[in-house]
């Protein structure tokens, strides 16, 4: 499915919560809990995204021209946010990932987590995913 279609799917899902922050965050926490655990061999310092209040590990690999991500965080809400971004970006080509605008984060009312002062790792994680995509792209084209 195209990135924007997945984003729309998430927007529709979150619409059910309306202004009810509690259900929204409960859902995020559930998503966090259901995020497939990263293989412990990748949970190393070099996969750690720094500069966040919570620690986030990210592993990216390319299979048949499409990128897979696995990630983990020690904070469950961050993990829920990570799960959403992975759902949107995973299984796409490097170019699709690099060009993704990820407007859904704003649309589902979680824009505050993109604030740089929030330091929760989401901004840095998205940046890292795009950088990994770029690196893996140059690897297949070389």
């Amino acid at each position: 499915m195209e990135i924007e279609k997945i984003e729309q799917e998430i927007i529709d899902e979150f619409e059910l919560f309306g202004k009810d922050w509690e259900s929204k965050y409960e859902h995020l926490i559930e998503l966090g809990k259901s995020l497939p655990i990263i293989d412990p061999i990748y949970k190393t310092d070099d996969k750690l995204i720094r500069g966040c209040q919570s620690r986030v590990w990210l592993y990216s690999e390319i299979v048949n021209g499409k990128i897979n991500f696995s990630a983990d965080s020690d904070a469950i809400i961050t993990k829920g946010l990570v799960a959403l971004v992975i759902r949107v970006l995973a299984n796409h080509t490097p170019d699709e990932i690099i060009n993704a605008k990820l407007n859904f984060i704003n649309a589902i009312g979680l824009k505050e987590h993109l604030s740089p002062t929030r330091a929760n790792g989401l901004v840095n994680m998205i940046k890292q995913m795009k950088m990994d995509a770029l690196a893996l792209k140059s690897k297949i084209s070389s």
């Binding site: 965050y25 926490i29 209040q53 919570s54 904070a75 469950i76 961050t78 330091a119």
Partner: peptide, 21 residues
Amino acid sequence: GAHPFDIGTILDKQGIAVRTG
């Protein structure tokens, strides 16, 4: 079992400003 960031986020949703980190 709870990261300070998670607690701080949910407290904020309830109008309570604390510092975490």
